[in-house]
Simulated scan of single mutants.
Amino acid sequence: MVRDRSLSARAWNVGLIAAMALAAFASLAPIIHTTAVSLSNSAAAAGGFITFWPKGFNFESYRKIIEDPHFGNAFLVSTKRVLLGGVVNFVLTVLMAYPLSRGPREFRARHYYMWFVLFTMLFSGGIIPLYLVVKYMGMFNSLWALVLPGAVPVFNVVLLMNFFRNLPKELGEAGLIDGAGPWYMLVRIFVPLSLPAIATVTLFSIVGHWNAFFDGLIFMRSVENYPLQTYIQQLVVQLPPEYMDSTNMDLLDKMSDKTLNAAKIMVSMIPILAVYPFLQRYFIHGIMLGSVKE
C-alpha cells in the first residue's frame, strides 16, 4: 500500500488528529474537573476557582467516605442490584428476543407479541400504578423493588432480536436437519454468535442499574436500603449534620459539601470505568446491531 505523502494529505491527518484530541479532552474534562474539586479545600471549591488542578490539596473528603458507613452500605446495595438485575435482564432479554426473531412459520403468534412489546415502549401505566403494584406485592425496602419493575428492557429486546434475525438462516435450517431443538440452537449456536450484541445490551443494563436513583427514592423507606446513586442524590443539597460541627473548624476548612459530593461521584464512577474496557471490544461491533441486511 502506497501512502499519500502530499501536503494536503498530511494537513488532513494533522487536522483529524487534532479534532480527535479535542473530542477526547472534552469527554475527559468533566472527570478531571470533578477530581480536582474533590481534592481541593472548601474555600477554593466554594469560590469556583478550581479548573483542572486542585487547590489546597488534601484527601479529607475521601477519608470521610471511607469512614461513612452509609456510603459503604449504599455501594454494596448497588453492587447487589447490578449483579442480580444484570442476570435477570440478560436471561429475560435473550428468552424474549430469540422467539421474536423467528419467522411467522416458526412462531405464528409473533406479530401479536411484537405489537404488545412495542406498545410498552410507547406507553406506560405511570408512576402511581407502578408504586401501587410494588406496594401490594410487598416489595418495599427490598432489592426486588429495584430489579423486577425493569426486568425486561424492551429496547434491549428489540436490539438483540434484530441481531438474531440478521444471522444466516442456514444455521437454523442446518440445526433442524441435524435434529437440534430450539433450546439447543439458542444455547449452542445463537448465543455464542451473538456475543457482541449480548455484551452491548448487558452494558446498557449494568449502566442503567448503577445510575438509577429515582426508584430507590420512592421504594426504599430507610437509608440502609438506598442504592448508591439515591444516597448521593440525597447529599447534593447539604453536608451531613455530623460534619458541620462548629468545633471542628480544621475539617470545615478542608472539606465542604461540594468537595465531599465530588469525591463520592468519583468513587461511584470507578466500577463502570473498570468494567467498560473489558466490554469495549464487543461494544464496537454490537453498536451496529442490525445495520447489515442479508
Results as ranks from 00 to 15, higher is better:
V2S: 15
L186K: 12
Y276W: 01
F278G: 13
S78R: 05
T230A: 15
A43E: 12
V207D: 08
V152C: 09
A274F: 04
A9R: 12
Q229R: 08
M288W: 06
M1W: 09
Q234C: 11
N261S: 09
E67S: 14
I189P: 15
V158F: 06
G150E: 02
Y231E: 09
T200L: 14
D178A: 13
P196L: 09
Y184A: 13
M137P: 04
M244T: 14
P241A: 02
L235H: 11
R81G: 07
P182N: 09
K293T: 00
M255F: 02
V275T: 07
I32L: 15
I32F: 09
P104E: 00
V88F: 05
A36P: 08
I32R: 06
W210F: 05
L239T: 15
V207W: 07
S142E: 01
I287A: 15
A274R: 06
T79C: 11
L143D: 08
W115L: 07
H111N: 15
I31E: 14
F90E: 11
L118H: 02
F204C: 10
I32C: 13
P99G: 10
S222I: 00
L167F: 06
S101F: 04
A44S: 13
K254V: 00
P182A: 06
Q238E: 07
R81W: 01
V87R: 13
D4S: 05
P227E: 13
G208N: 09
L132K: 09
V87W: 08
T247N: 14
A145R: 04
M1I: 02
P168I: 00
M249C: 09
Y98I: 06
S291D: 06
F25W: 06
A45M: 02
G286S: 07
Q238W: 04
I17G: 05
M121W: 00
K169A: 11
L289S: 15
V14P: 07
A199I: 01
G125T: 00
G150L: 02
F119A: 13
G48A: 02
L22K: 07
V37W: 04
V94W: 11
S142D: 05
A174G: 09
M121T: 01
T34L: 08
I32A: 12
L171I: 08
G181C: 03
G216K: 07
I66F: 06
E170R: 11
L95N: 10
V91D: 14
I232V: 04
G103I: 00
M244I: 10
A43P: 04
V87Q: 13
I218N: 15
H285E: 12
S42Q: 12
K293I: 00
S27P: 03
L83E: 06
Y62N: 05
K55H: 11
I270Q: 09
A9P: 05
A46C: 08
K258H: 08
N41R: 07
F214V: 03
Y62V: 01
I270H: 11
E106Y: 08
A262Y: 03
Y243L: 12
V154R: 01
Y282C: 10
R281N: 14
A174D: 03
E170A: 14
G125M: 02
L28W: 07
